Simulated assay, not measured.
Amino acid sequence: MPQSDLYARVRALNDRYRHHSAISVLEHALRDPQAGKLALVSSFGAESVVLLHMVSVTQAATPVIFIDTEMLFAETLVYQQELAERLNLRDLRIIRPDAQELARTDAKQTLHRRDTDACCALRKTRPLQRALSGFDGWITGRKRYQTGTRATLDFFEIEDGTGRIKVNPLAHWARDDIRTYMEENRLPRHPLVSRGYPSIGCMPCTTPVKPGEDPRSGRWRDQDKTECGIHFVNGKLVRKGVSA
């Protein structure tokens, strides 16, 4: 599809659903032909249960892609299994890094110590791109409040270089909205949250957060890195959304 047509689609989607609620954006995106065939990509992390629950009550057969980097916390893997069963997710796709590529480039699981970007690309970015083949877009749990690079996030944006659309139903939510939704729907929290992990990634690159610290400060601590790479294209941060 020509880039101009893609921009027009994203602009139309943002205009159409500008004033809709998060669950309404999700519900319409899953049915709107302009959004195309979508999958939800979930880390089953600290706040993931909100969007997973929304999908389960809206369209439980929505494909859910979970990337098992093979370096996740055991608690995350158990939480993923429990949520999938509790929410009756009907099309959960567990994606892992390519075994041959792992053996060739990170057999001893030490790549993260030398090059975190390369490790994320090996274990997250490339597996996700393979998993998304055949989809027109994907649903993310990103929110404006999480980092400065997400401050102008729209409901719909373009993933540059792939021709896919990204849908961010929770873009305008605040942290209190997340907490309220979880409480009202009695959703289980990731077990590591109560142990000081408000943002959870791979075990070697995630540390507890002290009171008063930014919630994402425990990710790649003391490094000039705030994103794992799945929202990057060709190594660059994607900021190609069309304003709503």
Rank of each mutant, 00 (worst) to 15 (best):
Cys228Leu: 05
Pro211Tyr: 01
Glu184Phe: 00
Pro169Met: 05
Ile230Ser: 01
Leu192His: 03
Arg195Phe: 01
Pro215Asn: 02
Asn234Pro: 03
Tyr181Thr: 13
Arg189Val: 06
Val209Gly: 13
Met203Asp: 13
Ile230His: 02
Met182Asp: 01
His172Pro: 10
Ala171Trp: 06
Gly163Phe: 01
His231Glu: 05
Lys236Met: 10
Asp177Lys: 04
Glu184Leu: 14
Cys228His: 04
Cys205Gly: 09
Arg189Lys: 10
Ile158His: 00
Ala171Phe: 07
His190Thr: 07
Asn234Arg: 05
Asp224Thr: 10
Ser194Cys: 09
Thr226Leu: 13
Asn168Ser: 15
Tyr197Glu: 07
Trp220Cys: 06
Arg239Val: 14
Pro188Ile: 01
Arg216Pro: 12
Glu183Pro: 06
Arg164Gly: 07
Phe232Met: 14
Tyr181His: 11
Glu183Thr: 12
Arg221Glu: 08
Trp220Ile: 04
Thr207Trp: 04
Lys236Thr: 13
Cys228Lys: 06
Thr180Pro: 11
Met182Cys: 13
Pro191Thr: 03
Arg239Phe: 00
Ile200Gly: 05
Lys166Asn: 05
Asp224His: 07
Cys205Ser: 10
Gly212Met: 10
Arg164Gln: 15
Ile165Pro: 03
Pro204Asn: 05
Glu213Gly: 06
Arg239Ile: 09
Pro191Ser: 07
Ser217Ile: 08
Ile230Trp: 02
Val209Ile: 06
Pro198Tyr: 00
Asp176Cys: 09
Thr180Ile: 14
Lys225Trp: 00
Ser217Lys: 06
Gly218Ile: 08
Thr226Cys: 03
Leu192Cys: 09
Ile158Pro: 01
Pro191His: 00
Glu227Gly: 07
Ile178Ala: 04
Leu192Ala: 10
Lys225His: 03
Gly229Arg: 04
Lys166His: 09
Leu192Ile: 12
Cys228Glu: 06
Pro211Gly: 01
Thr162Cys: 09
Cys202Pro: 12
Ala174Met: 11
Leu192Gly: 03
His231Arg: 06
Arg164Pro: 04
Ala171Lys: 03
Ser199Asp: 08
Lys225Thr: 05
Gly218Cys: 08
Pro204Asp: 05
Cys202Asn: 10
Glu159Asp: 14
Tyr181Lys: 11
Lys240Ser: 15
Asp214Ser: 13
Thr226Lys: 08
Gly235Thr: 04
Glu213Ala: 11
Glu184Tyr: 00
Asn168Gly: 07
Arg179Leu: 11
Val238Ser: 07
Met203Glu: 15
Ser199Gly: 14
Glu159Gln: 10
Val193Glu: 15
Thr207Ser: 14
Asn234Asp: 14
Arg195Ser: 10
